[in-house]
Design a protein around this nucleic acid. Sequence first.
DNA 1: TATTGTTATACTCTATAACTATA
DNA 2: TATAGTTATAGAGTATAACAATA
Lengths: 175, 175
Amino acid sequence: MSKMSNLPVHPAAGSPATFDADLDFGPLTRRLGYVVRRAQIAIFQSFFQTMSGAQISPAQYSALVIIARNPGLSQTRVAQALAIKKANFVALARELEQRGFVERRNIPGDKRSLALHLTSAGRLAYAELDRLSEDHEARLREVIGIEAYEALFEPLIRVATVNAVEPNLSDSDAD
Amino acid sequence: MSKMSNLPVHPAAGSPATFDADLDFGPLTRRLGYVVRRAQIAIFQSFFQTMSGAQISPAQYSALVIIARNPGLSQTRVAQALAIKKANFVALARELEQRGFVERRNIPGDKRSLALHLTSAGRLAYAELDRLSEDHEARLREVIGIEAYEALFEPLIRVATVNAVEPNLSDSDAD
DNA sequence: TATTGTTATACTCTATAACTATA
DNA sequence: TATAGTTATAGAGTATAACAATA
C-alpha cells in the first residue's frame, strides 16, 4: 500500500527505437498518431535521462507546475487541469506531499476540499526542475532545429482538442 | 490466458481534456513532451472513434501495415520495427492470427522463425483499415489545417530519434 | 554460444465503481 | 442530491528473466 515513487513511464531507455531504414513503413510515417506516439516515447525517455538526478516523472513535474502557478487549487481541480482522473491523482499528490514538495491545507469554507500549495522546499525543487526541463527543451531544439521546434506547439495544442465537446451540449459527466 | 482483444489504449473518450483557459499553465505549454503527450492521447481517442467499427487498436494497425508492406518478416523483426518487445508482440501476433488476418508460416531455412504474411482476409481488412485511417488523417487535417499538418511529420520523426544510439558503439543488447 | 518464439511475472498507467464526510 | 477526497479493482502497456527448440 505504500509504493514510494510514481516514476517510470517507459524508462527502460538506452536502445535504438529509430525507424528501420531497410523496411517499408508504407503509410505509417504519414499517420500522425504513429509519429506522435513514437516522438512522445522518445521525448519521455530523454526527459528521464535529463532528470535522472531529480527522480521526477513527467506527470509529477506537470503537477508541480500547475500547483506552483495556481496555488490553492483543490486536488480535483489540478487533476482536471492535467486530464488525470481525480482517483489516480491521489497517489501522485500524496507522494509530492511525502517528499515535502506539496502541502495539502484545509480551507475554511469547505471541509471536503484540500488546497494544494508548494512548500518552500517545493519551490526550491520546482525552480531546479524547471531549469533542468528547460535544458531538456534546448536538447530537443538542437535535434530538430529552432524553427521546427517553435512551429510544433501551436498545431499540437490544436490537435489536443480534437475531441473537445461542443460548447452548447448537455455537458454531463465530470470525471 | 486467452483474452481476445488487445484494444484499449485509453478509449474512455467522450470528455473535454482541453487546456483549461482560466488556469496558468506556465511553462507547460512550452514543454514539447507535455504538448506531444496531450496530442497523442487526443489522437488515439479520435482514432478509436473513427475505427470503432473495425475493432482495431493503433498497435494492431501498425503491425498490419508492416506485415502488409514487408511480407515474410519474422516476429522478432516486426516487433523490432515497431519498437515493441518481442515478448509483448506474441499476444498481438496471436490475435491477428486468430482473427484470420495474419498467417505464421514455417520457413525452410530456419525452424525457429515464423514468417508473417497477411491472409487474403487480412489484405481485405487492411485495405479497409487503411481507408479508414486515411479518413482519420483527413479529420486531423481539418482541425489544424493542411499546412500545419504537413509540417509536423518531419520534425516529429526527427524527435523520435533523440535517443538513437551512435552508430559506432558496442551495440550490445538486442531486445 | 546465440537466437526465435514463448511463458511468467512485476510494475505502471488508466478507468470505473463505490465509499465517507461533507455540502 | 451533489461534490471532494479516497479506496479498491480490473484492464492494458511495458520491461525483465528465463526456458525449449534450433542454429
